[in-house]
Design a protein around this nucleic acid. Structure first.
Lengths: 114, 114
DNA sequence: CGCATAGTCAAGCGTTTGCTTTAGTAACGA
DNA sequence: TCGTTACTAAAGCAAACGCTTGACTATGCG
């Protein structure tokens, strides 16, 4: 049974590849055309485009074709999705630590009264 | 030449797998033993341990063995590393948009005087 | 028009990944 | 002490992934 992949799944999957992160780093400075990534990434245009497709499919970038040129830019909402997931985990963990601290405090109180 | 993988590389690589994210979700609620993940994840203990090794190698979790039991907990610093990378990209992109907005404002000023 | 540029599409290929199985070690519990 | 539990280590395998090549379409330009 192939479980339905959520958008968070696809976003983190996309971010898991170093080449795609390199693309995002460049794009966070400026929008860019596919062909402009060929030389810096040291791969063929076809390879670059495949990465761009992954990034666009999960909502991390947006692209628009004008004439024969496809220009891509960052889609901040995609990044937010990932940030949110991480923040949730971190918050949950810290909530746990707080609860634990409270518990220990109570035990200290109890022990001091013994 | 295999380029030296940074810790950020390894963290995002680890986060790219849905099973490992599921592990982190559970662990953000409570520390957990390897064997406790076998049933919920529907895989062998050996498989679980391999995921735990990846998570520990990149600093997303910490584990300690007491007797024959290995207990694992979230390592918030690892999460912070990922969050930071995302925040940097987002900040850079928004800085760009601001600069662009300023530029357009200037052009508006110019055009109104035509 | 004729040629170069920019991208698309599909097939193929080597490597990596996620998992299993098998075999082993060490600790706990009756 | 004996059996069970909890993990570790290594080998193997199918599927997924990243990338290339080759063929094609469409746009821009002298």
């Amino acid at each position: 049974m192939a479980r339905t992949r959520t958008q968070v799944d696809r976003v983190f999957d996309a971010l898991g590849d170093p080449t795609r992160r390199a693309i995002l780093e460049r794009m966070s400075k400026n929008p860019i055309r596919a062909s402009q990534l060929v030389k810096p990434l040291g791969m063929t245009l076809a390879g670059v485009v495949q990465h761009l497709q992954v990034l666009e499919a999960c909502g991390l970038i947006h692209s628009r074709k004008v004439g024969r040129v496809r220009t891509c830019r960052i889609e901040p909402k995609g990044l937010t999705l990932a940030t949110q997931w991480l923040a949730d985990r971190q918050a949950q963990w810290e909530r746990r630590l707080d609860a634990l601290a409270d518990l220990l405090d109570d035990e200290d109180d109890a022990s001091t009264s013994e």
